[in-house]
Design a binder for these strands. Sequence first.
DNA 1: CGCGACCTTGAAGAACGTCAATGGTCGTGG
DNA 2: CCACGACCATTGACGTTCTTCAAGGTCGCG
Lengths: 283, 283
Amino acid sequence: MEAALCVPRCMPDPWLNKLSALAPLTAEERHALAGAATRTVVVRAGQDIVAEGRPVDACHVLLDGFAVRYKLLPQGRRQIVHFGLPGDALDLDAMITGRLDHAVGAVRRCHVAVLPHGALHDLSGRHPGIARAFRCESVLDSAISREWVVNVGRRSSYQRIAHLLCETFTRLRATGHASDEGERAFDWPLSQSELGDATGLSTVHVNRMLQQLRAERLIGPRSDLITILDWPGLQRAGTFDPGYLIQDWRQARGSGAAESIVRAEAPDGSHTRRERPCPGRVG
Amino acid sequence: MEAALCVPRCMPDPWLNKLSALAPLTAEERHALAGAATRTVVVRAGQDIVAEGRPVDACHVLLDGFAVRYKLLPQGRRQIVHFGLPGDALDLDAMITGRLDHAVGAVRRCHVAVLPHGALHDLSGRHPGIARAFRCESVLDSAISREWVVNVGRRSSYQRIAHLLCETFTRLRATGHASDEGERAFDWPLSQSELGDATGLSTVHVNRMLQQLRAERLIGPRSDLITILDWPGLQRAGTFDPGYLIQDWRQARGSGAAESIVRAEAPDGSHTRRERPCPGRVG
DNA sequence: CGCGACCTTGAAGAACGTCAATGGTCGTGG
DNA sequence: CCACGACCATTGACGTTCTTCAAGGTCGCG
């Protein structure tokens, strides 16, 4: 009762809103999920929210802040594999596995709701809507993960950074964490070194590509706030197609689909080898 | 009745075996799942099993063959984001979304069981074990996907190829599709161009790295069959740690965990920046 | 025999990493 | 108040990795 003021929200409302957008939740289900949160913790910037490999017995939901899922490699190298944004469950998979194959770190001060697995399993068994919502969030994470493979695998450094900015802006906007009227902008707590860890690039090269994006007036000059000066231009620069982030599956399933933007590839349903020119990145 | 002989198996047994290894399935659940398969189709090498973006109303389970999930980029470039091996559900996510954000192609002739979403949703709602098994397979796919991000993001070309071979062998061995006594070997239907699409490399460079792996006597000389001559050596070459593929979650959850191999990173639970040397790949 | 798909090789160049140094900002302690 | 150190952004020079381009070789198949 005395600690009710120390954090902006003690209920996992951002998460409930995200889940509701993915799958319909009844008022009862929302209330039950909110009641599963036993506590809220504040994690300092640079600290781990979940350590790699350690057993986990609760889900962590990001209420506020910026988190990354990352894996460490020999010789101190690191690859960030996912951005955790407000409203995201950071370790939903651990409900199944009981541990994570990667770590979750706080890029800046994070407010995290803790929801024990036991309670979530109970709810998931009793409420089909909740079980479905969990699977929806999992599916969305998978789609993002696949796109990250494409990003680091087949895009130039310039495209990679532009694409990641487009993706992050789109995700933040969906939950109301990016301003969208007039000037598009969002807080950016990542250092250039961390952005390199997310894109598979060196710090120096990240710096040069950011300068190029700024020189072309696609983004603003500040490093702690991404201002998108030319949204269509930035999407072009990153060859960004938000189709994989679309969450209106209920609508998309029934209708004939008009939600994707570019989607104009070979309509014949074949990928025989002789038709493709050659692999490799294009600068 | 007349087509019963045309395919080796008409029941999705390899999939049931995989699911059973992930989560306990009762005999009744196995039987119910097997009954959900309405037909088996044979897809020729080079053809798509599921086209990108098209509505899907059934799950496709690979009984035999080798499939890839891939995304196309402008100018004919391609990134393969997943290998579909016998026993894998190729498009489980589409149960939720009703469509795929990527295509699924047959690398060589594939036998595919078709299980309509309606029936799977029914079973998933009636049998908690089935619902859990679906989520388990999803979680495993996610873990693999994250490791692919690491692979293309932070490993050298040589390491990437070695790692992918290690992963594929480990997955095939788990389902009995790779020989393990005496000589370790498995069928390899991918061309060097396709291997480049999976690792984010050019065909030419894939060729040179494969030659290096062969010259170092880590793998055999044949291009249609990977023979692992030095399994510890190949794991070292790819910095391969199978921890993310471990499927014994029921055991792993309770015990203190001794299943991982390397797992000897910073035990302090912090990743403050000044401690890491520098990002980037190492050859 | 000719064609297409694939593997292989060489040479040249672009993209990106590494090394090293500079300056800026901020918080801390004297 | 200033000095100091940590972290970060930035810049230049240089080296490596990887791509691109081009050509030749093998094999299976019509």
